[in-house]
């Protein structure tokens, strides 16, 4: 464990807390993509299936349970919460996720770290899907132009988590002999690259004060 990975995990937890605060606390799903929320639930339920047999680290075990629980809670409230459904904009949240899930599934089968292990195929699928899972959310924000304050912090924390993981991988590559994880490195790079435009606008709007809303062209 290094500081970059720890801060990355904390940023990931923060993104969940912000989203839960908005959806469950604020009873509003305005500006939030259910499609992204559902893809994240798929990402965690597939990748963390090793909860059933891998007890290597209590820290990982607890956070995996937290991430699965939080992502399913978010999907549940967005689908069945009366006030959440009322504020959720299904028409605008229209990114065709089948064009994301299918290629990731094919890639997961073809490119993984042990072709004899079904779990490795599922694990690779989950890594690829996470890289593109934010697209419906960014697509929705782009359509709406203005990003509500809490939502902007949620997306920023979610983007920052994988950016911090990139630093974690660089650190591990430099300090650990023959450490290599090409699949997560490339996927993490793509995932973080997708946020660049948002990061830019987030920075532009927040440098004038944390409560300014983010405007996307």
């Amino acid at each position: 464990m290094n500081i970059f990975r720890f801060l990355g995990d904390m940023s990931h937890i923060l993104s969940f807390l912000l989203l839960l605060h908005k959806i469950v606390g604020g009873k509003s799903a305005a500006g939030i993509s259910l499609r992204t929320a559902e893809m994240y639930a798929i990402v965690f339920c597939t990748r963390y299936i090793d909860l059933l047999w891998n007890f290597a680290s209590l820290y990982n075990y607890l956070l995996k349970l937290l991430f699965i629980g939080a992502s399913l809670t978010i999907v549940y409230f967005m689908r069945y919460g009366p006030s959440q459904k009322a504020t959720y904009n299904a028409d605008e949240d229209a990114f065709p996720v089948q064009y994301l899930i299918a290629p990731c599934a094919v890639l997961g089968v073809l490119i993984n770290q042990d072709h004899s292990s079904p779990f490795e195929m599922v694990w690779a699928f989950s890594i690829y899907l996470e890289a593109v899972a934010i697209l419906p959310q960014l697509f929705l924000l782009q359509k709406q132009g203005e990003v509500e304050n809490l939502t902007s912090h949620y997306v920023f924390a979610l983007g920052a988590y994988r950016a911090l993981y990139l630093l974690n991988w660089m650190f591990r590559f430099m300090t650990e002999p023959d450490y290599q994880q090409r699949i997560v490195w490339l996927s993490g790079l793509v995932q973080t690259a997708l946020y660049c435009d948002f990061f830019y606008h987030y920075y532009q709007s927040k440098k004038g004060g944390l409560n300014k809303s983010v405007k996307l062209p």
């Binding site: 995990d9 090793d50 290597a56 956070l63 770290q113 994880q181």
Partner: peptide
Amino acid sequence: EQEDHEHDEL
């Protein structure tokens, strides 16, 4: 390709 790793990260 076979890469020696255990999934020690989230």
